[in-house]
Design a protein around this nucleic acid. Structure first.
Length: 557
RNA sequence: UGGGGUGUAGCCAAGCGGUAAGGCAAUGGACUCUGACUCCAUCAUCCCUAGGUUCGAAUCCUAGCACCCCAGCCA
């Protein structure tokens, strides 16, 4: 009956969606097939999430499919450790490749045959030049390259040599197979690119079956062709490779002609995204591992408390384009807040405890308040929160001499204890050094939360935890990993934010948090969103990670 | 000084010759038993610059300028 317009979730368009739409309506394709092709040499990060959401999202929205393909052509750098983690992260993010799990290494035999085909047709040759010599012959950006003296070997000789390369006759680096294209091409990728190199290394997936391995360029397009990929989407730095991608497809009897499209990779402020740098942070112990909650890896974000939904929302919001861009961290942060605000049950936790004593509350007595788990969603239920004469409150919620605009507790002032009573501060007690160690106050029994007539307005509301009932916990406060928006240069590690993690012990939690399961997320009222650490937390000594703070329009001033 | 790209608000990003969507950030206000949430309002006479075509240009043309990528037997 409502006239309210449907709240439709519009997926923002982008040039790739338009291409896919056009290809489908024109009949160029009846279904689309995309792929996400990680190299198993590291953990997935938020930049990969952009690609995953793009590729799997396109397939999902246009009733196609998306393959997960490991681009495992370099056994020197790859490891099974990474393939399991990658699969888990893709699933965690919410995508499923179904039966379509592939490895480029599954195509090694076919690729080899195609290499022989190239040799036979005079379009590839075995080169004996060293890596250094090949580099010198390549020319420069402004000068053409020069031909290798081995460039004009006969097809028969090349075939013989290539077969002997395969059989293991030569040492690493002794020979390579190169495409014969154009040493004078202005596109350096076309100056007789290396197709195969000798690598006497055991492969995580093919074992010792091979001692020659195809280069990326010789594996990727053909793998796309074998799988029937219609739209092969990669990042901008591969744009220069597209002529080579197409040259190979045009010169080989492939079963299908995929098309490559490029988009700009994600840059996120205050963090780093390159695998090399992430690896270095882990190896140098600047962080506690790939899943350190400060890392932009998916395992790190997960441990930090980010939800898969929030990361998908983030990827939708930032869009897909071709211009270099730096996404502000606040977009990622706002994406989790939005998700967690709706889904995280509320609880009270005091991070930096200050004792508060209610002088007119009978000693030794206590009571329970039934508190809603979510202020806007009654379906999330209620919980019992104990109250007593001695409470913990946040140190920051008391100021002996309040600054202008301070709405919390100070001598002579009153404030509401969330879900409980209004209290009036009488005095504070200090240690010999002058530090406030205890706050004294009185309460008004008539103002008990929920009581008729208890809605008297007070300027502030603070959270609290009953001291005798409190649970002790460790809480880890995380902040951005780097102090500068774009950590770069040789001294990029000098730019690590020294306060990127602050470990608080002796924090006080309300007792309902006792049985919280690993990864369970909460909003600690007025403090932020927190989750139970999936590795270090135990029922006896709980550990929480701060995912993100609440927006704060007060301390900002 | 070769080749390939990109330039729309502080950060992203729609726009596809008919008179600048949206999000994040920011600002002001309302509401509030979370200084949260929510809500309302403000935020590009202008689209890298300069010319040109056109009744009309961010969109087309020309010439510049700035920035990014490419010289791994990495991907």
């Amino acid at each position: 009956m409502s006239d309210a317009p449907e709240k439709e979730t519009v997926t923002p368009t982008n040039f790739l969606r338009q291409i896919v739409e056009a290809d489908l309506t024109s009949g160029k394709h009846t279904t689309i097939i995309t792929r996400f092709p990680p190299e198993p040499n590291g953990y997935l990060h938020i930049g990969h999430a952009k690609s995953i959401c793009l590729n799997f999202g396109l397939a999902r929205d246009f009733n196609g499919r998306c393959h997960l393909r490991f681009d495992d052509t370099n056994p020197a750098k790859e490891d099974v450790e990474f393939t399991e983690s990658i699969k888990e992260s893709v699933h965690w993010l919410g995508f499923d490749w179904g039966e379509h799990l592939y490895y480029a290494s599954n195509y090694f035999e076919q690729l080899y045959q195609w290499a022989e085909h190239l040799i036979t047709t005079g379009k590839a040759y075995v080169d004996d030049l060293t890596a250094e010599e090949i580099r010198q012959h390549r020319g420069t950006l402004t000068e053409p390259g020069t031909q290798s003296p081995y460039r004009n070997r006969s097809a028969e000789e090349n075939l013989d040599l290539f077969r002997r390369m395969r059989s293991g006759e030569f040492a690493d680096g002794a020979k390579v197979l190169r495409a014969r294209i154009d040493m004078a091409s202005p596109n350096i990728n076309l100056r007789d690119p290396v197709l195969y190199r000798i690598l006497h290394a055991s492969h995580p997936h093919t074992g010792d079956a091979w001692c020659i391995y195809p280069m990326y360029d010789f594996a990727h397009g053909q793998s796309d062709a074998i799988e029937g990929i219609t739209h092969s989407i990669c990042t901008l730095e591969f744009e220069d490779h597209r002529p080579l991608y197409e040259w190979l497809l045009n010169n080989l009897p492939v079963p299908h002609q995929p098309r490559q499209y490029e988009f700009s990779r994600l840059n996120l402020s205050y963090t780093v995204m390159s695998k090399r740098k992430l690896m270095q942070l882990v190896q140098d112990r600047d962080v506690r591992g790939w899943d350190d909650p400060r890392m932009p890896t998916l395992v790190g974000l997960r441990r930090r408390g980010y939800t898969p939904e929030s990361i998908r929302t983030f990827c939708e919001r930032i869009g897909v384009g071709r211009s270099d861009s730096w996404i502000d961290m606040s977009i990622l942060e706002e994406s989790v807040r939005e998700d967690l605000n709706e889904r995280a049950p509320r609880a009270m936790a005091v991070l930096s405890p200050l004792k508060l004593v209610i002088e007119n509350y009978p000693a030794g007595e206590d009571e329970e308040f039934i508190v809603a788990n979510h202020p806007q969603n009654a379906e999330m239920g209620t919980r019992a929160v104990p109250f007593s004469r001695e409470l913990w409150i946040e140190r920051d919620d008391f100021m002996e001499e309040p600054v202008k605009g301070f709405k919390r507790l100070s001598p002579g002032q009153e404030v509401r204890l969330r879900a409980a009573y209004i209290i009036h501060c009488t005095e504070c007690i200090k240690d010999p050094a002058g530090n406030v160690v205890e706050v004294r106050c009185t309460y008004d029994p008539e103002t008990k939360s929920g009581l008729p007539g208890a809605e008297r307005k007070v300027k502030g509301v603070i959270h609290w935890v009953s001291a005798p009932h409190a649970l002790d916990a460790e809480i880890r406060l995380y902040d951005r990993l780097f102090a500068l928006p774009n950590p770069s240069g040789d001294d990029w590690k000098q730019q690590i934010n020294p306060d990127s993690v602050e470990v608080l012990t002796g924090c006080k939690l309300e007792p309902s948090l006792k049985a919280a399961a690993a990864e369970k997320r909460f909003q600690f009222e007025r403090n932020g969103y927190f989750c139970v650490d999936m590795k270090d937390s135990t029922p006896a000594s709980p550990v929480f990670n701060r995912t993100v703070t609440l927006r704060d329009s007060w301390t900002k001033r």
